[in-house]
Design a protein around this nucleic acid. Structure first.
Length: 241
DNA sequence: AACCAGGACGTGA
DNA sequence: TCACGTCATGGT
């Protein structure tokens, strides 16, 4: 029994490509992952929802920027980016937004700096654990399983780190992805993370920059049409499939 | 003034 | 495995 034409697998590839094309045409390149400039500020070139360097895929440009992306990935768990930004700017201003400096920091100081990002007691511990791991890599690209072994890093955070900090071909799935694509009929609303990840990794062109943009575009679109219930209402994507 | 945000973990069925 | 409570600040 198949009441939804969108769940026809023969159309998945076309539809998922069509959605990407529509999102890109509508919103343009997103410039993810956001990275602060050398002054420790948010570059003044974008709207508040976009990344900091649209069309520029040369990030991260050094190890510290990669580390910054990982820190942001942990801090943004269930947290608005605006609050994460405050925490990152605090860390940058205190000149501790690098792995060596961060592990030297006292527990109380670290918590105070990341406080705006919320859950600061937990996240402080997660950051220290991850930082030790990051240093142990000595620049090597970690395996997904290794990243997942760090307490506080689950599927989405691991994939975010791998895709945006390490330029690995890992599709990032978040609550927004689940919302949009379940409402469009591709998946169940409570579908497992890995099933959704595999859906995209099967049908999206296997290109790191496209993975980076697709996830960012999904977030941008969801913020406009799926941030408050009832979801799906007025979603223009309903009409293009 | 509730509700939500670019989740993950611990616990007890 | 799964449902549910917990963690916390700041914007709307």
């Amino acid at each position: 029994m198949n009441v939804n034409t969108n769940s026809n697998k023969n159309n998945h590839k076309k539809n998922i490509e069509k959605i990407y094309a529509w999102l890109m045409k509508s919103y343009g390149p997103q410039g993810w992952w956001p990275v602060l400039n050398h002054k420790g500020k948010k570059p003044n070139i974008t709207g508040n929802l976009r990344g900091y360097h649209p069309k520029d895929y040369s990030y991260p440009r050094n190890s510290n920027q990669g580390f910054e992306i990982c820190v942001g990935a942990i801090l943004t768990q269930n947290t608005a980016w605006k609050n994460v930004e405050k925490a990152l700017i605090n860390l940058k201003a205190a000149k501790v937004l690098s792995p060596r400096k961060l592990i030297q920091l006292g527990d109380k100081e670290l918590k105070e700096l990341i406080r705006p990002a919320g859950y600061y007691n937990q996240k402080a511990g997660y950051l220290l654990t991850f930082t030790e791991f990051f240093l142990s890599l000595k620049g090597k690209v970690p395996a997904r399983g290794e990243v997942l072994n760090c307490k506080g890093i689950g599927d989405e955070t691991a994939d975010s780190m791998l895709l945006y900090a390490y330029s690995q071909l890992e599709f990032v799935v978040d609550a927004y992805t689940r919302r949009i694509f379940s409402n469009l009929g591709f998946i169940k609303h409570d579908e497992k993370y890995m099933i959704i990840k595999e859906l995209f990794e099967t049908y999206v062109e296997r290109d790191v920059f496209i993975y980076q943009e697709y996830h960012a575009l999904i977030v941008e679109h969801a913020k406009r049409y799926y941030s408050k219930k009832p979801y799906r209402i007025n979603d223009p994507l309903n009409k293009i499939l």
